[in-house]
Simulated assay, not measured.
Amino acid sequence: MLHRVRRRHIMKVAVVTGASSGIGRSAAIQIAERGAGVILTYSSNQQGAQDAVTEIEKRGGTAVALPLDIGDTAGFPAFRDAVADALRTTWQRDTFDHLVNNAGFAGNSMIEETTEEFFDRLTRGLFKGPFFLTRTLLPLMADGGAIVNTTSNSTRPAVTAPGYSVYASLKGALTVLTRYMAKEFSARGIRVNSVAPGATRTRFADDAFERHPEIIPDLARTFALGRIGEPDDIGMVIATLVGEEGRWITAQDIEVSGGQNL
């Protein structure tokens, strides 16, 4: 008589940074909708992070919110320990599968007015932070997982805007880093891609769209598809890239912008 051994299904788990609102929140919810547990991070917006956890739980998923300052690498070892603890406590796992490097912040300054402090602050948040956070968490990542970095279509020639030289340059550096990560991590079967959103209705630039809704119609006309982006437009692509549908995609920077300035 043959006895079948039933293998216990292990839920995949994703870490999504900057998920208290906007693109990160959408990505966390979309990834959870596809059956993965989510560890989502927040900086100052704890209530927004808890609301995201509640939304995921309401839809039948599992999520944990942890604080993280992406610009403070000194806090990364403690964050890694918190992730390890959440994995053991919530999912009875020692590893996670997906990392979404979404946390960051905007900054606008003309080159002749840019201070070294401004330059360094953006560098810490937009490039150094994602680089060393990935390095710190890599030992906890399972082989065969996936990483998605959030970049920006401001790196494209057609979207050059005065005042964003530092921001766009650092997002460009993250795009290059994505390719190198894909190369180096491929030995472990870890795929790495980036998504480059266009102008999207988020808390970007201190809630610029919320504070100045009058700018939206003119901006929308610069999009081939006739509107500015919504967080779910980007979040669904991120979820696809870390999911089974993205299993043969790596080292790509995918613009998700509705044809801005096409």
Rank of each mutant, 00 (worst) to 15 (best):
V5Y: 14
R7L: 13
H9E: 15
I10V: 12
M11T: 11
A14W: 12
A28N: 08
E33N: 14
E33Q: 13
L40F: 02
S44G: 11
N45G: 11
G48V: 07
Q50M: 11
V53R: 14
V53L: 09
E57D: 07
R59G: 12
G61D: 05
T62I: 06
A65E: 05
A65H: 05
A65P: 02
L66A: 07
L66S: 03
P67V: 11
P67K: 03
F79G: 09
F79H: 03
D81I: 04
D81H: 09
A82L: 10
T89L: 01
R93S: 12
D94W: 12
F96H: 03
D97Y: 13
H98G: 04
N101T: 01
G104I: 08
F105R: 04
G107E: 07
N108T: 14
S109L: 03
I111G: 10
E112M: 13
E113S: 12
T114Q: 05
R124C: 02
F127N: 02
P130L: 00
F132R: 06
L133N: 01
L137Y: 06
L137E: 02
P139F: 13
A142Y: 05
D143L: 03
G144T: 11
G145Y: 10
I147T: 00
I147S: 09
V148E: 02
N149R: 09
T150W: 12
T155A: 02
R156A: 13
P162G: 09
P162A: 11
A168C: 08
L170I: 01
L170T: 00
A173H: 13
L174A: 05
V176L: 00
T178M: 12
Y180C: 14
F185K: 08
F185D: 08
V192S: 11
N193L: 13
S194G: 12
A196M: 11
G198S: 15
A199H: 11
R203D: 08
E210T: 10
E214R: 07
E214F: 05
T222P: 01
T222G: 09
F223S: 06
A224N: 01
A224Y: 05
G229M: 12
I234H: 02
M236G: 00
A239N: 00
Q252N: 14
Q252C: 03
D253S: 15
E255T: 14
Q260V: 15
Q260M: 15
